[in-house]
C-alpha cells in the first residue's frame, strides 16, 4: 500500500501528515491529530456524526472520505467554530434550546446547521428538516434541534443587519 504526503488546513492551522492510501479523513482527525470532536457513528455515511466542513462550507462525511484525496483542503470541525472562547451562534442556539442530549451527534449536527444557514440564511421548517437528513439523532426526536436551527437563523440574521 502506498503512502501520501498531504497538507490539511484544519480550523485554520496547517497540518502535514503522511497517510497510507486507505486512511480515512475521520481517522486522520481522530487518531493521527487527536481531534476527537469528529465522531465515528456508522462508518457508512449514514449518520453524520463524522461531518466536517470542506472549504468553509461544504458538509461531507469524513468516514467515507480518503484523506489522501483531500490534500490542500481546508477542513472545519466543531471545535473550529469556537473562536477565542466565543461560541458560534449555532452552538449557542443549540445550548439555549436544549437541543443537546447525549451529544454524540451534536458536533456533526452543529456543522450541518452552519452549512445549511450559510446557503440558506432563512430556511422554512420544512427546509430545515430536509437539510438535517443525513444527521441522525436518537435522543431529541429532532424537535429541539429544529428549534435551535430556527433560533440560530434569527440570531445570525440579527447580527448581520
Amino acid at each position: 500500500m502506498n503512502n501520501h504526503d498531504i497538507t490539511l488546513k484544519i480550523n485554520g492551522e496547517e497540518h502535514k501528515v503522511t497517510v497510507p492510501a486507505n486512511r480515512l479523513l475521520l481517522d486522520v482527525l481522530r487518531e493521527d491529530l487527536q481531534m476527537t470532536e469528529t465522531k465515528y457513528g456508522c462508518g457508512t455515511g449514514e449518520c453524520g456524526a463524522c461531518t466536517v466542513l470542506v472549504e468553509g462550507n461544504k458538509n461531507i462525511c469524513s468516514c467515507v472520505t480518503l484523506a489522501a484525496t483531500m490534500d490542500g483542503r481546508e477542513i472545519t470541525t466543531a471545535a473550529g467554530l469556537e473562536k477565542d472562547g466565543e461560541l458560534h451562534p449555532v452552538q449557542e442556539a443549540f445550548i439555549d434550546e436544549f437541543a443537546v442530549q447525549c451529544g454524540y451527534c451534536i458536533p456533526g449536527m452543529v456543522l450541518k446547521t452552519v452549512s445549511m444557514l450559510t446557503e440558506n440564511p432563512n430556511p422554512t421548517e420544512e427546509e430545515i428538516r430536509h437539510g438535517l437528513e443525513g444527521n441522525m439523532c436518537r435522543c431529541t426526536g429532532y424537535t429541539k434541534i429544529v428549534k435551535a436551527v430556527q433560533k440560530a437563523s434569527q440570531i445570525m440574521a440579527g447580527s448581520e443587519s
Binding site: G45, G48, T51, V54, N59, M116, G134
Partner: peptide, 9 residues
Amino acid sequence: FATPQLRNT
C-alpha cells in the same frame, strides 16, 4: 438523493 453530505461528494 441520499443525504446532503453525500450529495456534496
